[in-house]
Design a protein around this nucleic acid. Structure first.
Length: 260
DNA sequence: TATTCCCTGTGC
DNA sequence: GCACAGGGAATA
């Protein structure tokens, strides 16, 4: 689930659940999380109030009243479940924040690839991220500046969070399809008009994702992607069968007929 | 700039 | 069985 629209939706769920509340204790449910938590990290969270929850790229930041920060990244499969302390933990619970009023925010993640880290006020987290993919002030010229000289494919560039933050494998493919751009094109070789199309494609793909989140979150995505996961099916624009290729170890879905 | 690994579940 | 899964840090 978690690319920018999904993480943003999850952040809203978590914000409603825990901002303004006080942490009674944190629960660590998997060694992959425990590895990054010292005894002092856990102790410092105890009794702290969560004063705000923000998003940066695909990371969620829980700001504590002592200046500390919890950084949560869902990776491929993470999601929040809100329940009550005392309930049985949901399946695949990997981490949880139990609030003093009994509210509990649980990170569920079958694959256990999600990460949660604590950063004390003296060592706040840093992010080597490009501008947000949905940043309304982003321009084609600005995009060009971030891609100039890049030899990698435009598809791989869109997945590089240092260039643009928030796109993943699905929305990158969807944006390129909307822009009618061949995903193999060198990132630094796109013309101004193509970059303008790409920027529009990114915005349209993200907007579509946001528009359909409700349906997505309540049981299986009912919305059809434009190209993602449609290998062999006819392109929705030109009827050419959708093809796949591997780029940087990820599968790219694209239309050889109308993406140039 | 391109693989390798982290984890576990699912679908072929 | 085995390949693969919407991510990204670490490594070569």
């Amino acid at each position: 689930m978690p690319e920018l629209p999904e993480v943003e939706a999850a952040a809203r769920v978590a914000r409603r659940a825990v901002v303004g509340r006080t942490i009674d204790r944190v629960v660590i449910g998997h060694p992959s999380i425990a590895r990054r938590w010292s005894v002092s990290d856990r102790r410092r969270c105890h009794g702290r109030r969560i004063v705000a929850l923000t998003r940066r790229g695909k990371s969620q930041l829980l700001h504590l009243d002592d200046g500390g920060t919890l950084v949560v990244h869902f990776r491929l499969d993470g999601d929040w479940v809100v329940d009550r302390a005392g309930d049985a933990l949901p399946p695949f619970a990997r981490f949880a924040i139990r609030c003093t009023d009994g509210r509990r925010l649980v990170l569920v993640d079958p694959r256990a690839l999600s990460t949660v880290t604590h950063h004390p006020a003296a060592a706040p987290p840093t992010f080597a991220l490009g501008p947000e993919a949905d940043d309304p002030t982003l321009t084609a010229t600005g995009l060009r500046a971030r891609l100039v000289g890049r030899r990698t494919s435009i598809k791989s560039a869109l997945l590089d969070q240092r260039i643009l933050a928030g796109l993943g494998n699905i929305y990158a493919a969807e944006a390129l399809w909307r822009a009618r751009l061949d995903p193999r094109r060198p990132a630094g070789g796109l013309e101004a008009s193509e970059l303008a199309r790409l920027l529009r494609g990114i915005r349209a793909a993200l907007a579509d994702g946001v528009a359909h989140l409700g349906r997505y979150r309540t049981g299986g995505r009912t919305v059809a992607w434009r190209v993602y996961d449609r290998a062999g099916a006819p392109c929705r624009r030109c009827r050419t069968p959708i093809a796949t290729l591997s780029q940087g170890g990820r599968t790219t879905y694209w239309c050889p007929g109308c993406q140039r």
